[in-house]
Amino acid sequence: MNDLVTWLRAQLDEDEERTRELLYWTQQTILALKEPKLLGKYIPGWHDWPKVERLCRERLAEVDAKRRILDDAAGYIADGMEAATDGLAGRVVAYLALPYADRPGYRDEWRPE
């Protein structure tokens, strides 16, 4: 289970890094579109950039929430209290990892039943 927790933390770190990079370039694009020489010109899709920015912020909040859930569940497992949760802590970690099952390093043994 420790391998899964470590692997999942790395996936969340990667998600955060990629999302922060996208957020940066989205904000740069929004600023560029406010350039005076572009005012009044039709730029297809210009109105979608704030939506992308919002999605990035939501994704960062989602990654943070997943980290908190993972930390709580991993704490129960590390403290030997998983039995007290009737196995829920381990299942929560396995469920959190499912969206990343197509990434390198995911093991079929981690897939919840």
Rank of each mutant, 00 (worst) to 15 (best):
H47C: 03
V93L: 03
D13C: 11
E82Y: 00
G105S: 14
A65Y: 12
A89M: 04
Q27G: 14
G105P: 04
G45T: 12
Y76W: 14
E35L: 04
Q27W: 01
A32K: 13
K41G: 02
E82V: 07
R59I: 10
W25L: 13
Y100K: 09
L22I: 06
G90K: 01
C56T: 00
L38P: 07
A65D: 15
K34L: 10
D71C: 07
R20I: 01
L22N: 09
G90R: 04
L12N: 01
W46R: 08
M81Q: 15
A78R: 15
E82W: 01
L88W: 14
R103A: 06
A84R: 13
E53N: 10
A78Q: 12
P99E: 03
P36S: 11
P104W: 10
D64L: 03
A74S: 08
A65E: 13
K34N: 07
R20F: 01
R67H: 05
Y24N: 14
T29R: 12
M81E: 08
A32G: 09
V52N: 12
H47D: 14
D86E: 14
E17F: 15
I30T: 03
W46N: 00
D79R: 15
R20S: 15
A101W: 04
Y42M: 12
V92E: 11
E53H: 02
L23K: 12
E35V: 01
P104I: 14
A61S: 13
L23C: 12
I30M: 13
D86W: 04
R67I: 01
D102A: 09
L70F: 07
K34Y: 01
L23W: 11
A89H: 06
Q27V: 06
A32I: 08
L70G: 04
D48Q: 15
T29S: 04
L22V: 08
K37E: 04
R67V: 02
P104Q: 12
A101N: 06
L98P: 02
G105T: 02
R91E: 15
D72E: 09
K51N: 04
T29Q: 11
D72N: 11
R91C: 10
K37Y: 03
L31Q: 09
A61R: 15
D48A: 10
E16S: 13
G75A: 05
A101K: 15
V52R: 13
L38G: 09
W25G: 00
R54S: 06
